[in-house]
Simulated scan of single mutants.
Amino acid sequence: MTDEIRVLLVDDQELVRYGFRLMLNAMPGMLVVGEAGDGAEAIEAARRLEPDVVLMDVRMPGIGGIEATESITRLRPETRVLVLTTYDLDEYAFGALGAGASGFLLKDTRPENLVAAIRAVHSGDAVVSPRITAKLIEVAAPHLATRAAGGRDSGGGSAGDAAVDDALDDLTAREREIFVLIGQGATNAEIVEALHLSESTVKAHIGRVLAKLQLRNRVEVVIRAYELGVVGA
């Protein structure tokens, strides 16, 4: 029982919650511990039930999914929020990720992909649909390029490199490696393979990277890596 991923379902449609509950409870290592029909109920349920992962709808009456996500991730940073929505709109994706969600998927995602996503965010990975990731970088790139240019001198010498060094000065060499790999979209398993480290060691390094750079999740690491020019758009 202790190894089960505890899931809270949040959706204003009871039939949708029923379907997800049947599917997830049939999966090994998954346990639906509660349900909520709106954001206010979700916040209270997260506080009371202490789930590992929240499957969060976006559009609900009263307090919506994005506001609820922000409250839950603030009150319980250890709880991961995976946003599921019917609406393939950029403002929902960006709003959810900005609120601290660890992932954003559409409700037509295949069941096996949803289960894999739950396991991924529970282990500390971020899960964002490829279209949203591409759009995120597309929208952010001009802004990030302008900010990066502001840190370079007119001679175009090593000022940009110096700015990166200053920003990452608190990271060890290993933590810098992991920062770059996360920025490139590597999962924990891929980092383990690339650096020949144990999963627990990788998780510990990631935790220190987030803490030192004052970032909330892996999505913010990706944005920071693009901002510093460590990985290219």
Results as ranks from 00 to 15, higher is better:
Ile182Asn: 02
Ala93Ile: 02
Ala141Lys: 06
Thr146Cys: 05
Met60Leu: 14
Gly98Ser: 11
Leu105Gln: 03
Ile137Leu: 09
Ser102Cys: 06
Arg110Asn: 08
Glu177Arg: 07
Glu190Arg: 11
Ser129His: 08
Gly62Leu: 11
Asn25His: 09
Glu70Gly: 11
Ile72Trp: 00
Pro111Val: 08
Leu195Asp: 02
Gln184His: 03
Thr187Leu: 08
Glu138Lys: 09
Ile118Asn: 03
Val16Ile: 15
Val81Arg: 00
Ala173His: 06
Asp170Gln: 12
Gly155Asn: 14
Lys107Met: 06
Ala140His: 07
Leu24Lys: 05
Phe94Ala: 12
Ser71His: 12
Arg21Asp: 05
Ile182Tyr: 07
Val139Arg: 15
Asp90Ile: 10
Ala120Ile: 06
Asp88Gln: 06
Arg131Ser: 14
Arg59Ala: 14
Val139Phe: 04
Pro130Cys: 08
Gly29Trp: 10
Leu84Thr: 06
Val230Lys: 09
Asp57Tyr: 02
Val164Asn: 01
Arg74Ala: 15
Ala93Met: 12
Leu195Glu: 09
Gly229Asn: 04
Tyr92Asn: 10
Val81Ala: 02
Thr201Leu: 05
Leu89Gly: 07
Glu175Phe: 00
Gly185Phe: 02
Asn217Phe: 03
Gly64Ile: 14
Arg208Met: 09
Lys135Gly: 06
Met56Cys: 13
Leu89His: 14
Ala134Gln: 13
Ala126Phe: 05
Ser102Ile: 00
Glu175Tyr: 00
Gly229Ile: 02
Gln184Ala: 10
His196Lys: 11
Tyr87Phe: 15
Ile178Leu: 10
Ala134Arg: 12
Leu215Met: 10
Phe94Asp: 04
Asp170Trp: 03
Gln13Lys: 11
Val10Asn: 02
Ser158Thr: 15
Ala46Pro: 01
His205Met: 08
Asp125Met: 12
Asn113Ile: 01
Pro130Met: 09
Pro142Tyr: 04
Phe179Gln: 03
Phe20Leu: 15
Leu144Arg: 10
Val32His: 03
Ile132Leu: 08
Ala40Asp: 01
Ala225Arg: 00
Arg47Cys: 05
Ile63Ser: 03
Ala140Asn: 10
Thr86Trp: 05
Ala36Pro: 00
Ala126Pro: 00
Met60Ile: 13
Asp153His: 06
Met23Glu: 13
Val58Lys: 07
Leu24Ser: 04
His205Ala: 13
Val219Cys: 05
Ala101Met: 08
Ile118Val: 15
Tyr92Val: 05
